[in-house]
Amino acid sequence: MTTTIPSVPRIEALDALRGFALGGIFAVNIAIMANPAGFAEGPVRSFEEIFLHNRFYVLFSFLFGYSLTLQFRSAERDGANATARTVRRLLALLAIGLLHTVFLFTGDVLFGYGLIGLALLALRGLGPRSALRLAGVLYGACLLLFVALTVARMTQSPADAAQTATDNAAALDAVRAGWGEAVAYRWSDWVGRLGPTVAFGTLNVLPLFLVGLAAGKVRLFEDPARYLPYLPGVQAIGFGLGLPLSILPVLLHIPHTEALGYVSGPLLAGAYGATFLRIIHARPVVSEVFAPAGRISATVYLSQSLIAALAFTGYGFAQAGRWSDGAVLAFAAAVFVLQLVVARWYTGRFRYGPVEWVLRVATYGGTARMREHARATVSGPA
């Protein structure tokens, strides 16, 4: 007799939102994948700053917090230890994220998600309102921190700017080089940023996880009738406040407005999410396009880095710093469209992506029974 693992049914809207967020994340990440200095001053950078930067990781982080509540419920239905399962999954994310950082992309989020996820696990007993209050306190502290950093940057000397340019040139040389030089650069960069990354994750990402946790605890997305009436209001507030806060600093060339991005980011992320949800409920075919990528999001995310590494680093064609910013953004769009097509084909035949299979084995403890089950579901038709 074949043993199956009970699970909480997938929520199509969450998968579609996750797939949508992956496209935006890649459009932001591609800037430093193609050149460690990012996009140069110009129309492409302005477009990124207004519409993309600090938007899609907000959605993705919210969805991570929500998904954790689904994993807790799945463990409860199985009569399993939810804490042990979640710790194993988060430790696997830490390991995958560290490998991703060192070998492919210094802007990895999986390591941070695994680490900050452990903090969320410790806070999972909070009720929805308490989770939202704590999220507000932490995010407020994050804004204060970025105001302080902005003030500090306003006093940056010409020597500091020159050092930044030197560091960017050295990073460009490293990523164009072979495996050894690139890995050494990424490791050094990761070690140097580890402290700030943990601080940023605690003050900025953990609040987003907590909002997702609160939404998951009230099962917000399991009945569209509960959230659809509120979406126009979310759009009005998000676009009405978020867009001016994004557009004016760019159009008026106001320097050192990073802190504003952490105000406009969640506002526009909410507006984007609300707009997307209204679209997929009005046009279900759109959900069918994005949801497959969302179901294998870790595989899609890591494959983006692999494709970019082959294009821009010394592992492949070493094109870093050699393309126009418009060409880089167009490349990201073309790759993501191809990923949507491949993900739809793949999920029509297999239940889990390769990375999801690894995470599933880790989550269920790697027992022989789970290995057999996971191998069957990833290697056979769904």
Rank of each mutant, 00 (worst) to 15 (best):
M1L: 12
T2I: 14
T4I: 12
I5V: 15
I5D: 10
P9A: 04
P9D: 08
A16P: 04
G19S: 11
I25V: 14
F26H: 02
F26Q: 01
V28A: 14
N29R: 12
M33T: 07
F39H: 04
F39V: 01
E41C: 10
E41I: 14
G42D: 07
P43H: 06
R45Y: 07
R45S: 11
E49F: 11
L59D: 11
S61Y: 02
S61K: 06
F62V: 13
G65Q: 05
G65F: 03
Y66L: 14
A75Q: 03
G79C: 07
A84C: 00
T86G: 01
T86M: 15
L90G: 07
A92P: 03
A95R: 04
A95N: 01
L99T: 12
T101D: 02
T101C: 08
V102R: 05
F105D: 02
G107L: 04
L110D: 01
Y113E: 05
Y113W: 05
I116T: 12
A122M: 11
R124W: 09
G125C: 08
R133G: 10
A135T: 02
G136R: 01
A141Y: 05
L143G: 00
L144T: 06
L145K: 00
F146W: 09
F146C: 05
A148D: 08
V151L: 15
M154R: 13
M154A: 14
T155G: 13
Q156T: 13
D160T: 10
D160V: 10
A161W: 11
A165G: 00
D167T: 06
D167Q: 13
A169F: 06
A170I: 09
D173C: 00
R176D: 05
R176C: 02
W179N: 09
W179M: 13
G180A: 10
A182R: 15
V183H: 03
P196W: 08
G201D: 11
L203K: 10
V205A: 13
L208A: 15
F209A: 11
L213M: 15
A215K: 12
A215C: 13
L220T: 12
P224F: 05
L228P: 10
Y230L: 14
G233F: 01
A236P: 00
A236C: 03
G238Y: 00
F239D: 06
G240D: 06
L241F: 11
P244L: 00
L245V: 09
V250R: 13
L260P: 08
G261F: 07
Y262G: 00
Y262E: 04
G270F: 05
Y272V: 06
A274K: 01
T275C: 07
F276Y: 12
I279P: 08
V285D: 12
V286T: 09
F290K: 03
A293V: 02
R295E: 00
I296T: 04
T299Y: 08
T299A: 12
Y301T: 03
I307V: 15
I307C: 00
A308F: 07
T313C: 04
F317S: 14
F317D: 06
R322Q: 14
W323Y: 15
S324A: 14
A330C: 08
A333R: 01
F336P: 01
V341D: 02
A343N: 01
W345L: 15
Y352K: 13
P354Q: 04
V355M: 13
V355H: 09
V358R: 07
V358M: 14
L359I: 03
A362P: 09
G366S: 00
T367G: 11
A368F: 10
M370G: 06
R375A: 15
A382P: 08
